Simulated scan of single mutants.
Amino acid sequence: MSINSKIFSLVYDDLEFQLELYTKEYIENELNKINCITVDSVKIAAYKTPERLRKIYLDKNDQHEKYHFFAYIKFFTYENEKYGIVGGKTNYPSCDICFDELKDENDHRIARIFLKDKSLKWDNEVLIINHAPGKDRKTDEFQSVFIERYLQRKFNLFDS
């Protein structure tokens, strides 16, 4: 463990593991070292996520909306520090980033179970990780899936 991370206990179905989660600052610094991506930190209200991101994308690109996938990281705050917890992918036209909680006892999304068990809440700041749009929709989506998996493995993030 370093000053850039903290060990959290994660209990799931009677299994307990120690998980090292990384600070937003550390994650952002590491991602900024990668040449083929760009990283934006965006604060969004849960109910305005798709509209806000679509506007950011259109404002930055000054062009008509097109299908473009991207990866993202969501955080929670613990003792005044933000830690990464979810790595996912979505697209600008139909963005599906959400900050919901467990829906019922059949909801097995591990990040939400962790937050509930620790009495923690989502942070409304999200890192958006963009890549150059692929030559077609399939390539574009595959590139964002590749980045999503990289983020999950490098920073111990859960699926969305």
Rank of each mutant, 00 (worst) to 15 (best):
R52D: 06
D123H: 12
A111I: 01
Y57E: 00
L127T: 02
P133Q: 08
E148A: 00
T38W: 10
F114K: 01
D136F: 03
N124H: 11
D117E: 09
Q63A: 15
E101R: 15
Y72K: 00
R137P: 07
T139Y: 02
E148V: 00
K116D: 14
V126C: 04
E81S: 14
Y57F: 13
A132D: 12
N29I: 01
V11C: 11
N124Q: 15
T77G: 02
K24R: 13
E81C: 14
F142L: 14
E16Y: 04
L157K: 01
G88C: 00
L115H: 06
E30H: 03
D136L: 03
P133S: 10
S160K: 12
L21F: 10
L19H: 09
Y78T: 01
I85T: 07
A46F: 11
A132W: 06
T139R: 08
E20Q: 13
L31V: 02
R52N: 10
Y72W: 02
Y12W: 11
Y12E: 10
I128R: 03
K55V: 08
K121V: 04
Y12M: 05
H108P: 10
M1W: 05
A71E: 05
L151K: 02
Y92L: 04
G84P: 02
E30V: 05
K103G: 00
I3H: 14
A111M: 02
F75W: 00
I110H: 00
T23G: 04
A132R: 13
E28L: 12
D140L: 03
N32S: 08
F142K: 12
A111N: 08
Y67T: 13
T90I: 03
R153D: 10
I129D: 07
G88S: 06
K33R: 11
S5Y: 03
D13P: 02
I56Y: 14
Q152R: 12
I128S: 02
L19A: 06
Y150D: 08
T90K: 05
G134N: 04
L151N: 00
G87E: 00
L120H: 07
N91I: 05
E16K: 09
W122P: 02
E141K: 10
E141L: 08
R112Q: 12
V86T: 06
D96I: 08
E28P: 01
M1F: 11
E105Q: 13
F69D: 09
I110C: 03
H108W: 10
N106W: 11
V145A: 08
R153S: 15
A45C: 13
H108G: 10
F69E: 04
K60I: 01
Y150V: 08
K43Y: 15
K138D: 13
S41P: 09
E51M: 12
I128T: 03
A111V: 00
T77I: 14
F70R: 05
S119Q: 15
K82E: 06
E125P: 04
M1T: 13
Q143E: 13
E25Y: 07
P93E: 02
K55P: 00
C95F: 01
Q143Y: 13
Q18N: 15
E25D: 14
E25W: 03
R109I: 06
D123A: 12
F146E: 14
D100Q: 10
C98M: 07
N130P: 05
R54G: 07
F99M: 07
C98H: 15
F70G: 02
I37M: 00
E148G: 01
F75Q: 00
V86D: 04
Y57I: 01
P133H: 09
R52K: 15
P50H: 11
L127I: 01
K66V: 11
